[in-house]
Structures are given as C-alpha cells and as structure tokens.
C-alpha cells in the first residue's frame, strides 16, 4: 500500500521535473541553492508540509531547496529572519498564515509589518477545523453539545494548542456565534491538547483534520462539524458550520509560501508558476491526502485577499477577548 504511494509519488515527481525544467531555468533563476525557512521546529506539522513541498521544488528547480527551521515566538522569529534576508528569491518562507495574520494582534506584536515586509507567493495547502469530541461523550450533534453548554455555562471545556492560536480563536468564535460559554484550556502544542481530548480531560477540541483524522478513523473521537465550506470527502456525515447555521465560523488554517518585500516581480512570477504546478501535481495532492490535508493552491494576489480578511477577523475577535492583557 505504502510502497505504491511512493512509486506513484516518484513517478509523477520525475514527470514534473521534465515538464518544469524548461520554463523555470529560462529566467535564469534559481542559479544556486534556495533557502526555505520554516518558522517552527523540525518534525512539526508545518515542517513536514514544508519539507514535502521543498522536495518537489528541488526537483522542479533542479536546484536544492534546503529547509531551515528557525522556531520561536509562534513563528515570528523565523518570519523576522526572512524579512531581514536579501529579497532576491533565494530565501523563502513556508508558514501557516498566523505569522502574517496575527503579527499585529499578538502580545507583544511582531517586529515586522506583514503587509509592508512580506509578499505572499501562493497558498499551498489547507486543513479545515473539526469540532471534535470523544466517541463516548454522548454528543451526537453540535446542537446536543451546545444545548448542554447553554444549560450550564462554562461546564463544558475545549482544549487548544495555546492561547491566541488558531484553534483557540476558532473555539472563541464558536462561543461568540452560538452565544454559549465554554471553558478554554490551553496546552503546550497540539499533541498534549489532543491527548487531553482523548483522555477525557476536556470535552471538545477544535482541531485541524490532519491531526485528528487518525483518531476519528480509530473510533475514539468523532467530529461534530467542520469549518470547511463543503462536506469533506473522508467524512461525508459531518455537517459544515454553514449547514448548521453558523456561517461566520469558517476559519480554515492554511499554509503558503512568502518572500521578503522587494523580491523582483520576475522571480515572484517564477516561484508562483512553480508553486502552482507543484501544489496541484497529482503526486503532491495524493501525498497530502494520506495525511488528511487538503490541497488549496491559490495565487499570491488571491491569497493576499484571504490573509487580509483573516487578519481583520482575528483583530476584531482579539479585541473582544482579554487575551494577554
């Protein structure tokens, strides 16, 4: 089973290489090794995605794309490093949207201005959030869950990978939209937060598909709703938040490529072209599917619009919470 994926993966990759070699080198870029900064530790979700993407880029470029992990301060430190790097296309940032959308709203705010200092090249992948509960929790629908929460405000709790993160804010958004009170419990990272859900320490977790799918398939956890605009192929019985009447709870964490502001337009164009071909290649999409991550290519200009809307939404939400005050 696994071997088959790899064979396919390898086959398509080499095809992509042949197809792309011409157009990419025509511009003279890249002539040397490209550095791709992942602003989180090696082995994390963003790192795994970034490395898979870097591998594809390496083959497309015919130049090594080296992943460099510069973690710290929720991705701000690594992003800062990219902002300070030469804007020549030889330093890329592969990151979730948070270092862009949360830069202004975090405490303390990031030392860079994302709108001024970063150019979004392309969105690569996305993972809708699943409002997940334990299978033996007795909740079959989101309505059940919210009804209990309404009767007993603050009785039900949800875990997140940390205060101010996307999962926490999505939980807060649910509270706001449904008018119920839930207790937020923060953990150091997604792993401990999932463990808390599985072990019964908390009642619910807004969690991205890739992190929780294995537990749903295992039968220990079930999803009550998804923030995806349409029902997910792997979970056809799980309704969307729009269906349930909460269209405003629609946040989908996504990952993309950025370069420092000032990078020449031609280079950005090459990067975008290669990103599109890579992100939409059958091999890459299949690889994402094994990890329950959705392909979500979007060109830089459209990605920028999404980022702006998200940043404003977070800003509004953060101002109603007293986070870090």
């Amino acid at each position: 089973m696994l071997a088959r994926y790899f064979l396919k993966y390898a086959k398509y990759s080499s095809l992509a290489l042949v197809a792309l070699a011409g157009s990419a080198t025509a511009e003279g870029y890249p002539e040397r090794v490209v550095r791709m900064v992942v602003p989180f530790a090696a082995g994390g979700g963003t790192d795994v995605l970034g490395r898979a993407f870097a591998k594809e880029l390496t083959e497309a470029f015919g130049q090594n794309v080296i992943v460099e992990n510069i973690g710290g301060a929720a991705g701000f430190i690594g992003t800062q490093d990219v902002v300070r790097s030469d804007a020549d296309g030889y330093t890329l940032l592969f990151a979730p949207t948070a270092p862009y959308t949360m830069a202004e709203h975090a405490t303390p705010p990031a030392t860079y201005d994302p709108a001024e200092d970063l150019i979004p090249v392309a969105r690569i992948a996305a993972q809708p959030i699943l409002f997940s509960v334990r299978s033996d929790s007795g909740f079959d629908t989101l309505a059940d869950f919210l009804a209990v929460a309404k009767d007993d405000p603050g009785y039900l709790s949800f875990s997140s990978s940390g205060a101010g993160g996307e999962m926490h804010l999505t939980g807060e958004k649910l509270k706001q939209a449904s008018g119920v009170d839930l207790l937020h419990v923060g953990y150091r990272g997604g792993g401990p937060a999932i463990l808390a859900l599985v072990s019964g320490e908390v009642d619910m977790m807004p969690v991205v598909t890739g992190s929780i799918m294995a537990y749903i398939q295992d039968g220990s956890v079930k999803a009550l709703a998804t923030t995806a605009p349409e029902r997910l192929e792997k979970l056809p019985d799980v309704p969307t938040m729009t269906e349930l009447g909460y269209p405003e709870v629609d946040h989908i964490p996504s990952w993309g490529v950025f370069v420092p502001a000032g990078t020449p337009d031609e280079v950005v164009a090459v990067l975008q072209e290669v990103s599109e071909k890579t992100a939409t290649s059958v091999a890459f999409v299949e690889y994402l599917d094994t990890l329950s991550i959705s392909p979500a290519y979007l060109p830089g200009a459209d990605f920028l619009e999404v980022l702006k809307v998200q940043a404003d939404g977070f800003g509004e939400l953060m101002s109603t919470l007293d986070l870090g005050q």
């Binding site: 696994l2 790899f6 082995g43 890739g210 799918m213 294995a214 398939q217 329950s292």
Partner: peptide, 19 residues
C-alpha cells in the same frame, strides 16, 4: 519525539493510535 513522528509523516504514515 515530535520529530520522530514528523519523520513518519514525511514517509506518508499518519501517526495515531493505529500506527
């Protein structure tokens, strides 16, 4: 340990209770 699991993911193995 996160890095060990990340390595599994790089190889297309989804970490979880069924690994």
């Amino acid at each position: 340990m996160a890095l060990i699991l990340g390595t599994l993911m790089i190889h297309g193995i989804q970490p979880g209770p069924r690994v």
